[in-house]
């Protein structure tokens, strides 16, 4: 890390990082800028960077035509709901694997993670038919259930990684003092693992927020979250770039803002705990 670096070298590295960062960020920036242009300015040549007439017209049009807030609320309910339920199931499981490992723990963990490598289409049809049977198609409940199931392996894996960093001795001490198992998990383990749980929560909210495979196929109009909302903008409005940008910006804004204010958790979460 602290390799001997001359000031010039450091400056060059910083500039290189800035250029790469700008290149990577440019498509996002451009989408946000375009959302404030008129349709004519959006496709004007040469491209206008900041010297255009700023307008909020696209946003009002998009909201009027397809009630952004309903989709936004669907996204919030679905992503938070599936994450919270997932955590409730995963905390005990990760506790068991981290602190009371058995002979099979490693295999269970690997097998669970491997389900994440299976293509979701493999189980799409049975789930679709089951949902139709029980009237869960196009409901938020249905999506919460399916996203909980899909993200559970990742939640367990991440929590397991974080729990393993907590010294067993502290839990031992609590038990010596007569704490019951329930109290041990709720009052000792969970507070100590708060940073890890926060990262897991953030990652899962983001994953569920962005999930499109299931939301596109299991919802129609009623329960459609933001991903389905933008997808619906792509075909008929394909050439109205300013409106499309406004819709996209509204869909990604919550993630960008949330991510900016919790950078540490974001980095930790998105890299699945690999970056501390």
């Amino acid at each position: 890390m602290a390799r001997a670096v001359t000031p010039q070298r450091k400056a060059i590295n910083t500039i290189a990082a800035w250029i790469i960062g700008l290149l990577i960020f440019f498509p996002i920036l451009w989408t946000i800028l375009t959302s404030f242009k008129t349709e004519a300015a959006a496709v004007a040549f040469p491209p206008q960077f900041l010297n255009f007439d700023w307008t909020f017209e696209n946003y009002t049009t998009v909201q009027e035509r397809s009630s952004y807030f309903r989709h936004f609320w669907n996204s919030v309910v679905i992503s938070l709901g599936s994450t919270v339920i997932g955590l409730i199931i995963a905390v005990p499981a990760a506790w068991a694997m981290a602190f009371v490992p058995g002979k099979q723990t490693k295999n269970v963990l690997m097998w669970m993670l491997s389900t994440k490598m299976l293509p979701p289409v493999g189980v799409l049809i049975p789930i679709y038919l089951l949902f139709r049977q029980f009237g869960l198609l196009d409901t938020r409940t249905g999506l919460v259930i399916v996203l909980t199931l899909m993200n559970l392996p990742i939640i367990v894996w991440m929590l397991y990684t974080y729990f393993r960093e907590i010294p067993v001795d502290i839990l031992e001490a609590a038990r010596m003092d007569g704490a019951s198992l329930r109290k041990e998990i709720i009052y000792i383990l969970t507070p100590m693992a708060v940073p890890g749980i926060a990262s897991t929560l953030l990652l899962n909210v983001i994953l569920s927020w962005n999930e499109a495979f299931w939301t596109l196929n299991l919802t129609a109009a009623k329960a459609a979250p933001l991903t389905a909302f933008i997808a619906s903008y792509s075909s008929p409005e394909g050439l109205f770039y300013a409106k499309l940008s406004a819709a996209s910006t509204m869909a990604i804004a919550p993630i960008l803002i949330l991510g900016w204010f919790s950078q540490k958790q974001l980095v930790r979460g998105l890299t699945f705990g690999a970056v501390k």
Partner: peptide, 19 residues
């Protein structure tokens, strides 16, 4: 920088595809 590099991954594939 790390956050900026990670931002694309935090976007939905739908948005990426459209952009």
């Amino acid at each position: 920088f790390r956050s900026i590099f990670l931002y694309p991954f935090a976007l939905s594939f739908i948005v990426t595809g459209l952009v």
